[in-house]
Design a protein around this nucleic acid. Structure first.
Length: 111
DNA sequence: CAGCTGACGCATA
DNA sequence: GTATGCGCCAGCT
């Protein structure tokens, strides 16, 4: 792949998250060697704001499985609704069974 | 140019 | 489990 900005890499990984699964900022940041999970959140913020393609940002949560970015979506409930629509159970703004639903970017490398 | 903020993460107390 | 601090880096005031 050519040299891309960190957001492009984040978008790429985010789009690769299997449906019904979730990932974390830390895992993505570490995989892309961004050095900071904040950069991942920022890239996603820009993506949903500008509506860049189809970036399932709702599948990206923090290390605790909490929907920390729900407030950044069109509506605070959109993130949870989308996750539940994909089969991910969300309770109290937290992904249930998160530990099992957690998806690691490195799986792409093994694929 | 300086400082603050922010969809985070981890260590420590 | 809650509170505080540090690192991290881009963007905005």
């Amino acid at each position: 792949m050519s040299e891309q900005s960190y957001y492009d890499l984040v978008y790429y990984i985010t789009q690769k998250i299997p449906l019904g699964r979730v990932s974390t900022y830390g895992d993505i940041a570490d995989y892309l060697s961004l050095g900071s999970a904040r950069m991942v959140g920022w890239a996603l913020t820009q993506s949903n704001r500008a509506g860049v393609g189809d970036v399932p940002a709702h599948r990206v949560v923090n290390s605790k499985g909490e929907l920390s970015g729900r407030h950044n979506f069109a509506t605070p409930t959109l993130m949870q609704e989308r996750l539940e629509a994909e089969g991910v159970l969300v309770k109290n703004d937290k992904v249930q069974n998160f530990k099992e639903l957690r998806w690691h970017p490195e799986e792409l490398d093994e694929s």
